[in-house]
Design a binder for these strands. Structure first.
Lengths: 221, 221
DNA sequence: CGCTCCCTTCACACCTTCTTCACGGCTTCC
DNA sequence: GGAAGCCGTGAAGAAGGTGTGAAGGGAGCG
């Protein structure tokens, strides 16, 4: 499913966009300011970003520039009519397209589809962490060449950990990613899946380490 | 060039400060009371403000509170020794640091430089103070490249200090931030966590300094 | 319908972390 | 110089987080 992060300080705009996109089967994540938006993007690796230019604390252009230092994710700018100069700057800083508020949903969806198609070509189909390999295209995991038999939830969980191998991934990040639409607390289920994963990973290769009170970390050796 | 506004009712103090700062290539503007000081700030948009707490008509604390309604400009408080309680109030009202009269010019210039530098490094997903680095996204802390093993409370506490590295953070500010929902007095627990943090930080890099009766300060070297 | 697979919940033992207490050193103030 | 208050730190109990076996329940399928 297509993941989108919306960065806009106005709750109404976020709600509208969210509704429209969810109806098209997008998985939507919202952020109300630049820093938290960047964190969402860094972790979720969405397929597209909708970015408001007129953010309060850290303006949209700064967010975009910061983002482009490490990500090529398609970015669609949301701007109001009188920010012409800013729009140009944004495009030069690496935005893919823009729509002017107020915008029609049809136009928005069309532009979104276009910028995604443009970027679609290159994507990493495999991630590795030591002897562990995840093939995202085929949903397959293997450990030192041997195929691992993982359930969908386990694969998703391991994916979240392996993508940031060696680093801490917080409980909140894991849960938002593995259970995006879930409102109830999944931390209990998470512990059980971690337990299952550890058993399947065995004692020799990569290990899942708990950082008490914070999250988990996948280490290579 | 750096613009500074000095608000102090004593002409000698203003003249001294003015000389020192001009020698360092600051552009200096003087005001002898709160209202005219605020006007200067509103009009000049200075890069820093030096504010005497003991002003005749409108006291320094009132000036600061008024100022903070519309400006984030760094403010360095000038106070005399017996205004301890006032200093705490000033810091909690948004002052960035203070120096006690009489003060050395070296100290004044150093603190001024610190509070100006810090305003730029807001909102970054990573915070550094000397050899100390906090990665907020991954909840990781490292000292000179080595990862520090911190508990959640320790991380939160160090975060509060590091975000204002070089400046005083009052007990009240720390406690409200680390234990937001707590009603009981956590000052005892705070001392213990500070102790643990100091042990983990060691004796070489950044140090946590106690400012008796006021709060703590994280210094780089 | 019965089977299988998978996810979630529960129970409980275990372990880490937080808080409190106690006490000694240090500074400040009279 | 003595008293009072603030601060640092060791130790220990309290509180809360974590791992895992087992059981319940829903979806898909023949």
């Amino acid at each position: 499913m297509n993941k989108v992060v919306i960065i806009d300080d106005e709750p109404q705009v976020r709600r509208l966009l969210s509704m429209v996109l969810k109806a098209r089967n997008y998985e939507v994540h919202e952020a109300e300011d630049g820093p938290s938006g960047l964190q969402h993007i860094a972790f979720l690796r969405p397929d597209a970003v909708l970015l408001d230019l007129g953010l309060p604390a850290m303006d949209g252009l700064s967010v975009l520039k910061r983002l482009r230092e490490w990500s090529e994710v398609p970015v669609l700018i949301l701007s109001v009519r009188d920010e012409e100069a800013l729009k140009v700057e944004a495009l030069e800083a690496g935005a893919d397209d823009y729509v002017t508020k107020p915008f029609g949903t049809a136009e928005l969806l069309a532009r979104l589809a276009v910028i995604q198609r443009r970027r679609f070509t290159r994507q990493h189909p495999e991630i590795t962490a030591g002897t562990l390999t995840l093939n995202l295209l085929h949903h397959e995991a293997s450990l030192a060449g041997d195929r691992l038999k993982l359930t969908p939830t386990e694969f998703s969980l391991l994916h979240a950990l392996a993508e940031h191998a060696g680093r801490i991934v917080t409980f909140g990040q894991i849960i938002r990613r593995v259970w995006p639409a879930q409102l109830s607390d999944q931390s209990e289920a998470l512990r059980v899946h971690i337990s299952h994963l550890r058993r399947k990973l065995g004692t020799t290769g990569p290990q899942i380490i708990n950082e008490p009170g914070i999250g988990y970390r996948l280490i290579d050796s």
